[in-house]
Amino acid sequence: MTYPDQRTEDEWRAILNPTQFRILREKGTEAPGTGEFDKHYPKEGVYTCAGCDAPLYKASHKFNSGCGWPAYFDSVPGAVTRHEDRSFGSVRTEIVCSNCGGHLGHVFKGEGFPTPTDERHCVNSISLKFSPEDKVVEKSSKA
């Protein structure tokens, strides 16, 4: 699949630190409970892709799942693309940034969390940046 942001691997290496590159570009995973945003619960703001800064999740989408990674029940419409992941001998749904293809984590359904979608987007903190301003609203209000 192709994505709008078509940087080369060398260009990604120039802007990402080695851990960000391993996770975003090589589909790695950070250790549970170690990420900057695992226990981060602002009332407002937007989590963006650490690679390309595309808005991915609103702060209001975040919830405490206790899984050790940031969890969101939904994404900004069109911001996240889903792929079947058959690594590690099981079938999971990988989620990537729809703008650059950067690996975010996985989405799980039907776990019984009291959220509007019954989904858990389990995202690596290192795949994200946070902005206290709601970039999604700002963008749409300029249209």
Rank of each mutant, 00 (worst) to 15 (best):
M1K: 04
T2L: 08
T2Y: 15
T2C: 14
Y3Q: 07
D5S: 15
R7P: 12
R7V: 12
T8K: 02
E9A: 14
D10S: 13
E11Y: 05
L16H: 11
P18T: 02
T19N: 11
T19L: 15
Q20N: 08
I23L: 04
L24I: 15
R25C: 02
R25G: 13
R25S: 11
E26I: 09
K27R: 07
T29E: 01
T34A: 07
F37N: 10
F37A: 04
K39P: 03
H40R: 06
Y41G: 02
K43H: 00
K43Q: 14
E44A: 05
G45L: 00
V46A: 03
T48F: 05
A50Y: 13
A50F: 10
D53H: 11
A54I: 09
Y57G: 09
Y57E: 12
S60W: 09
K62E: 00
K62D: 00
F63C: 01
N64V: 13
S65F: 00
C67I: 00
W69N: 00
P70N: 03
P70C: 05
P70Q: 03
Y72V: 00
F73I: 12
F73H: 11
D74I: 14
S75M: 04
S75N: 14
V76D: 03
V76H: 01
P77I: 06
V80F: 08
T81L: 12
T81M: 14
E84I: 15
E84D: 12
R86I: 13
R86Q: 14
S87Y: 07
S90C: 10
T93I: 15
E94W: 09
E94M: 13
I95Q: 09
C97T: 12
S98T: 13
S98P: 07
N99W: 09
C100H: 10
C100I: 14
C100M: 09
C100P: 01
G101Y: 06
G102P: 02
H103N: 07
L104Q: 13
L104Y: 06
L104C: 06
G105K: 05
H106R: 10
K109A: 14
G110D: 09
G112D: 03
F113V: 05
F113L: 03
P114R: 05
P114T: 03
P116L: 01
T117F: 00
D118R: 02
D118L: 00
H121K: 11
C122R: 00
V123D: 08
V123T: 14
N124V: 03
N124C: 09
S125W: 02
S125G: 06
S127Q: 10
L128N: 09
K129P: 02
F130E: 04
S131K: 13
S131N: 15
S131E: 07
E133A: 08
E133Q: 04
K139P: 01
S140R: 15
S141K: 07
K142P: 02
K142I: 08
K142T: 15
K142G: 08
A143Q: 08
